[in-house]
Write a protein that binds this DNA or RNA. Structure first.
Lengths: 126, 126
DNA sequence: AAAAAGCTACTACAGACGTAGTTTTTACTA
DNA sequence: TAGTAAAAACTACGTCTGTAGTAGCTTTTT
């Protein structure tokens, strides 16, 4: 898919777009947490850049405002991010998980749950 | 620890520094993969910025060249990166691992191995 | 010692990012 | 239809990144 490289802030905007589905600039702005809510035009600018990057597209116009829609999936973006992290960790996922465990971000219970889910899926698949 | 925020390229440089221990600029440059090996002065610049960020420090001088050394640990950097990724994924590690599994980056075997290692460590601890 | 080779320190610069102001257009509303 | 409110479009700008050139000092080699 598109090799869309998004910045952290663009990511946040995308998050809102994904959540809302087909928001206007105004809605995106209001969808951001109050603490750091940038100016309307800032959101507008980012949305424009996201459009140029092919991450969103304008769908239609309501009144005089455009509505936007994600043009890439959340999953594809997450995958790319994880791939980058993996590359950092030498290309293998195991050390990443080991790190998560070590830092307490992931528990043994989490692991077991995941394992079980995966086992089930594997069995079900095909 | 230091809230050192490193760019991708700085990360690469750090990687070489960590690997070599106490390299000179030249050694760092040569430690980078041949494909994208930047000019000597580019490496120098990055090393300078890393120094300003507190990520490396100059140790001594051999001939007329300085030697550098990491001032932050690999682990602390990795931890910060993972924290950022976790934040993206909603603060929880489980979805991250689920993603890894789904994309085939992590296998059931990996999971089991990790689980076992973790169990052992947990038992050993204190 | 003079030249050569290698380093450091300083400077530069284009493109990306975050941020937002200003001008122009559009579309309701009285 | 004229006025106004809201949005779009355009412009701007400081900082960060990747990238490297250049001037000048230092060490080594003739």
């Amino acid at each position: 898919m598109s090799k869309t490289k998004l910045t952290p802030f663009e990511l946040e905007i995308m998050d809102v777009v994904w959540k809302l589905g087909e928001p206007s600039v105004r809605e995106v702005q209001e969808g951001l947490s109050e603490k750091k809510r940038p100016a309307y035009t800032t959101v507008q600018t980012i949305l424009l850049r996201l459009e140029q990057k092919g991450a969103v597209r304008r769908t239609r116009k309501i009144g005089n405002a455009f509505l936007f829609q994600a043009a890439i999936t959340r999953k594809s973006v997450y995958r790319r991010i994880l791939d980058e992290v993996l590359a950092l960790f030498g290309g293998s996922a195991q050390p990443v998980v080991a790190h998560l465990l070590e830092s307490g971000k992931l528990t043994l219970e989490d692991l077991k749950a995941l394992e079980e889910a995966e086992t089930k899926k594997g069995a079900k698949k095909k």
